[in-house]
């Protein structure tokens, strides 16, 4: 057993690869990262993605390596990738260590929901894939779009209070608290999260919703469909005190992905929250309209 361990350790030591050319077969886990890779024009080098990577649509045709928190070492190695690009919350850590031990280059992007971290990720992916020019362009475009949005919001008198509601598979609706991507989107859209007593997602109670003083309930289309549409959602006991609240829904990936489309998603959210105002449209970008 000891000699076997030794041999395995030696194999690892001998397998440290030289990064002579940019990666050609990439496995990406994390929807925002996948979007960045495609936006940088490196989509043809992606060998597989995780189940959260739904955009661009082309990515859905690739082999799926499972949910990003439950990756499988041999499954990914069997695709013979030369790079595994993951967000900081991918795992399990033991499996990532196994793959690195087998000589696979594993790169983690910092986790977080802000325009700064998004820009940092774009730069990082650009440098690893040697797509510096495209990354510079994307970063500049995003910065300009975020700035334009902030400018239109500075002119808006309203700061709507909103609640973000999610329902996995039609189960009990959960409301987003602090430290969620939903809350980060609210900030970008000039809105206030009416639920701020806890971190993460918690089951929504009728009383908490009624007492939140929210004007709008934001949800994702997927959840709305799972619950059976807007009327069915309103009929749930949790929404008893929400008669006067509007419900708006967005594509979940678009709204919460924190990828290249985030500035546009924040603008669309800001506009949907202010039906009586005009929030200027952002310029059309190639990475927002990718097929």
């Amino acid at each position: 057993m000891r000699s076997l361990l030794l041999a395995a350790a030696l194999a690892v030591a001998g397998a440290i690869p030289a990064f002579a050319e940019p990666p050609q077969r990439i496995v990406v886990a994390g929807n925002g990262l996948t979007e960045i890779v495609y936006a940088l024009g490196a989509g043809d080098r992606v060998a597989a993605v995780d189940t959260t990577s739904l955009y661009p649509k082309r990515a859905q045709d690739l082999p799926k390596v499972g949910y990003l928190r439950a990756l499988a070492a041999e499954g990914i190695l069997s695709l013979k990738p030369d790079l595994l690009l993951v967000t900081d919350d991918a795992g399990p850590p033991a499996v990532l260590a196994q793959m690195a031990g087998a000589g696979l280059r594993v790169v983690k992007a910092r986790e977080g929901h802000s325009a700064e971290i998004l820009a940092e990720r774009v730069r990082m992916v650009g440098s690893i894939l040697e797509r510096g020019d495209a990354a510079g362009e994307l970063e500049k475009g995003l910065a300009a779009d975020f700035a334009a949005l902030a400018q239109s919001l500075a002119a808006s008198p309203t700061r709507p209070r909103i609640v973000f509601v999610l329902s996995a598979g039609g189960g009990t609706p959960l409301a987003a608290g602090a430290d969620t991507s939903a809350e980060a989107m609210f900030k970008l859209a000039g809105a206030v999260n009416a639920i701020d007593g806890y971190k993460g997602y918690k089951p929504l109670s009728a009383e908490a919703l009624a007492g939140s003083g929210a004007a709008v309930i934001v949800t994702v289309t997927h959840s709305l469909q799972a619950l059976g549409g807007e009327a069915a959602m309103r009929a749930l006991p949790q929404f008893a005190g929400a008669k006067n609240m509007r419900i708006v829904s967005f594509d979940g990936d678009y709204l919460l992905g924190f990828g290249p489309r985030t500035a546009h998603a924040a603008r669309d959210l800001a506009a949907a929250l202010r039906p009586n105002e005009t929030i200027a449209k952002l310029p059309e970008r190639p990475w927002v309209a990718a097929p």
Partner: peptide
Amino acid sequence: DERTLAIVASLRL
């Protein structure tokens, strides 16, 4: 080769 060795000796076994 290293990949096969890693898969068999460090993962499967």
